[in-house]
């Protein structure tokens, strides 16, 4: 689910940037540092604005200045039970992987309707019900997350397509 979230980030700045455009540098640095990054439980999608930049604090020894920036950003936090759209990127006999933006999900065979079967002889390998549903690398698919786990700087999810209205999207 997407949220507009208020966050805080500490940004160090090199002394060579201490000039009239300093706020621009800070803002650029903020975008570079946080956009698209994982923060444990959510991904920062886009920084809206940085509404408060603290006084600089010069770090002893290096001369770098440190700013604490409060900013508003659109973040995506996947929840268990959330339905999202993604792209299949790898098909295996035991299931397939779906990339939902930055989140890698695995759909196990047990979470695939029984009529959709693995066909290893197809090139590339695919899951298919021998009708209009074909799941292969590159297929757009709608999945429901059933488990989420975050590691340092990374998140993984388990998903299912064994429910109504889930599965490959008809183009």
């Amino acid at each position: 689910m997407f949220f507009l979230h208020e966050l805080e980030e500490t940004i160090p700045l090199h002394p060579s940037y201490f000039d009239k455009d300093m706020s621009v540098y800070i803002s650029n640095e903020l975008h570079r540092l946080v956009e698209g990054k994982n923060h444990g439980h959510f991904f920062t999608i886009c920084v809206m604005d940085s509404f408060e930049v603290s006084e600089a604090r010069v770090l002893p020894g290096t001369g770098m200045a440190e700013f604490t920036v409060h900013y508003r950003a659109i973040v995506w936090r996947p929840f268990r039970g959330e339905v999202c759209d993604g792209v299949v990127n790898n098909v295996l006999p035991s299931g397939f992987f779906v990339q939902v933006g930055p989140l890698l999900c695995f759909v196990s065979r047990s979470a695939i309707p029984s009529e959709i079967k693995f066909d290893g002889n197809a090139t590339p390998p695919q899951f298919t019900d021998n009708a209009d549903q074909v799941i292969e690398s590159g297929t757009h698919i709608r999945i429901k997350l059933t488990g989420i786990r975050s590691e340092v700087q990374d998140m993984f999810a388990i998903a299912t397509i064994k429910e109504d209205y889930l599965g490959p999207l008809m183009q």
């Binding site: 035991s94 979470a111 488990g147």
Partner: peptide, 14 residues
Amino acid sequence: EVQFAGMCANCGKD
């Protein structure tokens, strides 16, 4: 029996 990134791929448990 199938685990992905520390989760069970079938039931989603940690």
